[in-house]
Design a binder for these strands. Structure first.
Lengths: 214, 214
DNA sequence: AAAAACAAACCAATCGGTCTGTTTTTATAA
DNA sequence: TTATAAAAACAGACCGATTGGTTTGTTTTT
């Protein structure tokens, strides 16, 4: 035992894992910076500081590496979606509107701004024309929505009469945020978007409490 | 001036225009079929049936050709957005919910299904990492939303107290449809989406008529 | 000593773009 | 009208750079 005596001499399993991780991370970096069209193998390898030969030892093709990287990205989003529900509803006694708003703002910044937003769209577009990638990612895309629907709906209104509708409303919310994100991606940030999200929250709260809720 | 006596011998201006049009169309075809990464010049030229030399005579760079094609696509969408408002509200005496639904379904099929959806997203993503393209397209993306907001809002509720809010609601609607389209693009068609759009319409109609509308 | 990890030179194919030469249209003058 | 020269439209061979991927050889772990 005593395997970590010197910093050098790491096990092969650890080296392999770290190398694949490093390459996947560099793939996402390149994707975010240059888009799918510009994320060439050379760019990725330079970014990772990995030689072509070493790369070949860990991945068969570039597509395989991209698939692993994309899968990791999306699975991370699913995990966040599950965690975000409970985390962002600290005080169940607050008005529904406030809790909704907190949750939606959290989702907006986590999923639909900055690097994550760019990668999400980049990966979705790559899946469109790549059958294999699409087959691997489609269930995760659906899983994300399922997580949003069941988890958020439940943590917002555990007592709701119609749990299914609450889940649907959360999915609609995600769709709206996505479309908003696409606008900012293509045309730059829009200051009015925060107000639009507030309007959305008011509408949502009004609908949920339409029979005289809290 | 009997210039069109023979089918041959077309004016140079006409030839140039037709050629640029043909190349732009082929660019969009290639983009739809292979994505931005796979839409190489060779693919585009083969599709258009145009030689490399002829192409060079009409465009300086591939980027310039893509910009023209993308611009045409988006301007067509803006024109449709303007036309769709009046066209899809044939009977102003129908309930607001029905008119809303008709309009939203029309927008869904026109903008967010099939080839147009794919091209829209493809072009938006290309603009993300291409500064010049982005500068050219960003105002058109904004113009599309402006057309949706003012035109739809007005033709649905010319008497509305708050015209601004009606426009905002239409923009939110577009965002929701966009996000929904992205889901189908990445994970395939979802039968439940029609029901989700109906739910959205009910919510929208309820909100607009919340003070006792028609 | 065998196997896995790594490095770098190397490869055919393809990329966007250019060059050279031919055909078609246009402008001008007889 | 017709002859003609310049210009524009077009075709295809050609170019250096880059692409994803392979091969050969060295170092490190087992």
């Amino acid at each position: 035992m005593a395997e970590q005596a010197k910093p050098e001499r790491r096990s092969q399993a650890a080296r392999r894992e770290e190398m694949r991780e490093r390459l996947a991370a560099a793939t996402l970096d390149a994707l975010a910076d240059h888009g799918n069209a510009g994320a060439s193998l050379s760019v990725i390898l330079e970014r990772a500081g990995v030689s072509r030969g070493a790369w070949a030892h860990h991945f068969e093709t570039k597509a395989e590496m991209l698939a692993l990287a994309a899968e990791g990205l999306l699975l991370g989003a699913v995990a966040s979606a599950r965690a975000l529900g409970p985390a962002e509803t600290p005080d169940p006694s607050l008005p529904l509107e406030d809790r909704l708003s907190a949750m939606i703002e959290a989702a907006w910044t986590r999923f639909y701004t900055g690097r994550h937003r760019d990668l999400l769209f980049e990966v979705a577009m790559a899946a469109r024309t790549d059958t294999e990638l699409r087959a691997r990612l489609a269930p995760i895309f659906s899983g994300f929505l399922a997580a949003i629907g069941s988890n958020w709906g439940l943590s917002l209104r555990p007592d709701a009469d119609d749990v299914t509708e609450m889940a649907d409303l959360m999915v609609l919310t995600i769709y709206m945020l996505r479309g908003m994100a696409m606008q900012e991606l293509a045309a730059g940030p829009a200051p009015g978007h925060e107000a639009l999200r507030r309007l959305w929250v008011r509408m949502l709260a009004g609908w949920v409490g339409r029979y005289g809720g809290p």
